[in-house]
Design a protein around this nucleic acid. Structure first.
Lengths: 212, 212
DNA sequence: TAGATTGTTAATCGATTAACAATC
DNA sequence: TAGATTGTTAATCGATTAACAATC
């Protein structure tokens, strides 16, 4: 398989295919067609086929794709098979919820530790260490961490972001509802609840109006 | 101002403008230009101008937009000024973090209560009630709730989703990492962590490869 | 063979960007 | 007036969809 340049829109759909494929019971058919996948996820079948073409080499006409193989290919493409170490800054409610969420391992994400300006405990219920923010530097150097998760209040996010970059972080998952200024080689992925809410409440407004 | 049809992409950018405008200190200039906004958020200025044109009626050439007015217009457009009531299903870690997060009020979202198949407490630390899932129906009827937040494990999400729809919910904020099948008049907004992670880890893979 | 499916090439659609006229 | 800015019209770009040939 030749690895072509992949667009962000395709990339964002891949986890959906993967999770659906994985959710199929053990005894399911060995092969699955793009048509079946598309129907299950409410998408166009051509789109599914094109997306799959990016990550695996070929289904078989009239039969479809080898399910197990497809799972493997997508997982590998998304890097789920080799884990990424990350640290989390801001051990508040949201931060602790993320620390406690066991599900990230399935995505190859391993949160090593949390940092906070005023740690309330030495570790979480699950045993993940919570350090004072002053330990950030030495920890990053020692563990060669590349991903940082920001769950501090918006007010402090930019400053924390800068600290992360200074310590070698290359990718930032930002839960703070604010824009972060970063150099072009650093990637910020905003988990923006406000954005989702905007879409939802616009839909409700339209529905309410319609009813009148 | 004539309310035109707004695209999702524009809609998703509006909260960003709003939060930046609100973050400006009290004593800031009365007017702000699209150019200034664009620079601050790292966007194209034409795009900002076009977006703003959707929600407010006109800035003044050479001067810009009235900052206060812009905040008001975007807030109103996004429906932040009239609150939406919501209920949350699944009072696990993530559910409780969302229940406890005070910031949603600023977005006009009011989570009335949580429901769970096995409630571990009668209410959260913050005093939000946690009911048994069997109470869902009567609660929805009594309070005319239109938005539901799903924070149950993926396995149960579709079933919970159906219950919500049966009880009159029109918009669903889905935190479960799974696809939900719904009728076309119901909106599902997926808060998909896997999607974000895919983008982030792809970036890291590219960086690591580059280094070699 | 007929039919279901894949994969590719072309057409469409929508969103972003560029160019420019209008305004203060 | 000159220059900064707005808002609009046209061009570009990218992604989705449609049409179709290839395959088993």
């Amino acid at each position: 398989m030749e690895r072509k340049e992949i667009s962000k829109s395709v990339l964002k759909r891949l986890p959906g295919y993967l999770s659906y494929l994985k959710s199929l019971p053990e005894g399911s058919a060995t092969y699955i067609s793009a048509t079946a996948l598309a129907n299950a996820l409410g998408m166009g079948e051509v789109q599914v086929r094109k997306d799959l073409a990016m990550v695996c080499d070929g289904g078989r006409p009239k039969i479809g794709y080898l399910r197990e193989r497809l799972i493997e290919d997508i997982s590998q493409f998304l890097g789920y098979d080799n884990t990424t170490d990350a640290i989390l800054i801001g051990a508040g409610k949201l931060g602790q919820a993320l620390l406690g969420y066991g599900g990230f391992e399935a995505y190859g994400l391993n949160i090593l530790a949390a940092f906070d300006a005023a740690p309330i405990a030495e570790q979480t219920q699950e045993g993940k260490p919570i350090y004072h923010i002053s330990q950030l530097e030495s920890f990053c150097r020692a563990n060669n961490v590349l991903m940082g998760i920001i769950t501090v209040p918006a007010m402090h996010a930019q400053q924390v972001c800068q600290q992360l970059i200074d310590n070698g972080i290359k990718a930032i998952w930002n839960f703070a509802p604010t824009h972060l200024d970063v150099p072009s080689n650093i990637l910020v992925q905003n988990e923006n609840m406000a954005t989702s809410l905007a879409v939802l409440s616009m839909h409700l407004q339209a529905q309410i109006k319609e009813k009148k």
